[in-house]
């Protein structure tokens, strides 16, 4: 299934891309996706799926847009 991954803020520079589409196996979870795109698991982050926060073991679905962002605090 096709998933779009979008990185936010310094993650773009630190992890080397801004946005890309991935073809991943059915049932891939949010946590597995993070590993697939080589995001350092120790980095504090918030992951959203179609604009809503996800839990790590949540299974993704075809066409999802997953956004991985540092924890912002609103300036």
């Amino acid at each position: 299934m096709k998933i779009t991954v979008k990185l936010i803020g310094p993650f773009v520079q630190v992890f080397g891309f801004s946005e890309k589409e991935l073809d991943v196996p059915e049932g891939t979870t949010a946590e597995e996706l993070i590993s697939l795109v080589s995001i350092d698991k120790s980095r504090p982050k918030i992951v959203t799926r179609n604009g809503r926060a996800v839990v790590p073991d949540e299974a993704l679905a075809e066409g999802d847009r997953v956004v991985i962002s540092p924890i912002y605090s609103g300036g």
Partner: peptide, 20 residues
């Protein structure tokens, strides 16, 4: 190390756009 000042406070704009 964190890279925060690369985009500074405006890093949050893209995130706000994603989460409405």
């Amino acid at each position: 190390e964190a890279g925060w000042s690369i985009q500074s406070t405006n890093g949050v704009l893209a995130w706000c756009n994603e989460v409405a």
